[in-house]
Design a protein around this nucleic acid. Structure first.
Lengths: 336, 336
DNA sequence: CTGAAAGCGCTTACAG
DNA sequence: CTGAAAGCGCTTACAG
């Protein structure tokens, strides 16, 4: 069938012009280069007739850029990240950029490898929810003047753009909400990662307790190991609720912990109601459709995506270095 | 900081050998080409010391391949696709391939554009959940001997590999299950797409009704427009349940329709129980945690991903044309 | 055992 | 107004 795609050389030969001329026309520099309208028209017709598409690989090799943006997140199948990815793809697409997604799986070695790979493919810019242990390579990107926007996770040692959510406040507000409803024994279920994004949620909880004259009790804070199988997490949660029967409210610091939590509660026939309240982090259908509906801390996906894209294009379009910004957006507490 | 990445030329110069020699060493052809161990060792050390990484763009331009596989799905934030994507990425990665994901948004023009773009970037292979109206370009890929595996959606006019699920049987079994439990007025909520994957679900429902001596009634089948805002879908569903109070079972033909359905039922205080049963397509946390738990048709993600990858690498590794296969996997009916 | 050279398909500074 | 030529960083057939 179709033997081989036509190259710029083929087009030039058919049109009886040089490849320079064809190149100028392809790149919209025809007018600027004073190419006659007749030639432009003829070449354009031939391009269409031959179905010529410039080889982007050759173009990348020559120009050093690729019109590709890498998006690296912990797990693309997490609804929070999938939602962000979708929004970013749409916005980038409109500006002529494509997105390559990747899951880091919270693994620094893997992330390093992936970034190496992207560099070797001339990726133009990076959007990263970073893992600890990747500070060095990310700093390198930044030093090489590659536009980088970090989001979700903050790495204090890196000077790069960051877009995130005020987790301290979100967690504070959720906990304070419990306290104002007169809950006395508020538990926190979180993950055992020492990253600001998570430790802030812990700090917010702790501060809200203090401000409402409730004592912070170690036994009411469960730190679940990251990447632990769900069954084990559920078992730990059952244990938590069984040994601390006074608990009358729980803040789950992540989406999947809340889901495990609801499973655990169901398995011990514990009902969510006025004397046992629950707030989940990151809203979703599962919380809206639960009986009763579960309150949630909702991160503003659209705003996060908007900020990321505008910071990225600010860098991409500017010739001089742009000082990095740290943008913190408020989460929304949805009480149901 | 780091000024410029070293090229093969730099390595050759430092090592005092030709770039040919360096290239052979990089590509593991050193032994085959009888390069002395001393030279190999020296060059390898220099490569590490300089942090040399071959430029993949140059390599692609020269070799015509890219070690990249495109994965095109309707919407990457749909848990079914996100799950498949995650599994495929993992498997491909182990074989040295990277995945580029894209959401087609069920838009043929967009899909065409994306495929053009991937072609111009020398993408090696394609995994596509295809949209109607893309038959021509997909057939072209296939004709150009690019490995292609279609999944989820079947396009009868294309001769390409396909991996899917037996939706007729899944839908038949679900409906028959209702009938065996003595439900008499079984509704079907589906989407108005005329694609085999969806029409099969309708046909399975219809056949099961016939086999159980239940009359097929138009008014119990709701075909929701694709891409309709969720609120409207919910309104339509409320209407369906209100005007047909005899309905005692509903099969939802997609994940998101089931979620809208549960919202609708909640809004009219209709409870799921023995006299109003529900089965959802594609399982998820939302169904497991619903009260009561919702039964579901579960597509075998892992098997689907496995089959896709093995069909793809079969083509990628074979020099001769491989006749296309159509693999149909059984879904699992999870009764709760 | 190793190297010089062509060429993949582009872009662009330079020349006329 | 248009073209010849260099060069981006590789791989590989060919030569010795």
């Amino acid at each position: 069938m179709s033997t081989k795609a036509p190259s710029i050389k083929d087009i030039a030969k058919i049109a009886n012009v040089s490849i320079t001329t064809v190149s100028f026309i392809i790149n919209g520099k025809a007018v600027e280069k004073n190419i006659s309208t007749a030639v432009i028209k003829r070449v354009e017709e031939i391009i269409i007739a031959q179905g010529y598409k410039p080889n982007q690989v050759a173009r990348s090799l020559r120009t050093g850029n690729s019109k590709i943006i890498a998006l690296m997140v912990e797990d693309i199948s997490n609804p929070f990240f999938a939602g962000i990815a979708r929004l970013i793809e749409e916005k980038a697409y409109k500006k002529g950029y494509k997105i390559i997604y990747s899951s880091t799986e919270n693994d620094a070695a893997r992330t390093n490898e992936l970034i190496q790979l992207f560099k070797s493919r001339q990726v133009d810019a990076y959007i990263i929810s970073p893992v600890q242990g990747t500070e060095k390579i990310i700093q390198e990107l930044s030093d090489e003047k590659k536009p980088v926007v970090l989001f979700d996770r903050y790495l204090p040692s890196i000077s790069a753009n960051y877009v995130g959510v005020d987790h301290f406040k979100a967690s504070y507000d959720a906990t304070a909400g419990f306290a104002n409803l007169n809950q006395k024994h508020i538990a926190l279920v979180t993950v055992d990662l020492e990253v600001e994004q998570i430790t802030d949620r812990h700090a917010g909880y702790q501060q809200a307790l203090a401000d409402h004259h409730l004592t912070y009790r170690e036994e009411l804070v469960l730190k679940v190991p990251f990447n632990q199988p769900r069954e084990e997490t559920i078992a730990q949660l059952v244990e938590l609720f069984k040994t601390n029967v006074t608990i009358d409210a729980v803040l789950f610091a992540t989406n999947y912990l809340a889901i495990s939590g609801l499973s655990a509660l169901r398995s011990i026939n514990k009902v969510v109601n006025d004397s046992f309240r629950v707030i989940a982090y990151d809203d979703g259908d599962v919380f809206k459709l639960h009986s009763p509906q579960i309150s949630a801390v909702s991160q503003p996906l659209e705003e996060i995506a908007d900020q990321i894209i505008s910071l990225l294009f600010l860098q991409l379009s500017s010739t001089t270095a742009v000082p990095p910004e740290k943008i913190i957006l408020p989460a929304k507490l949805i009480i149901r």
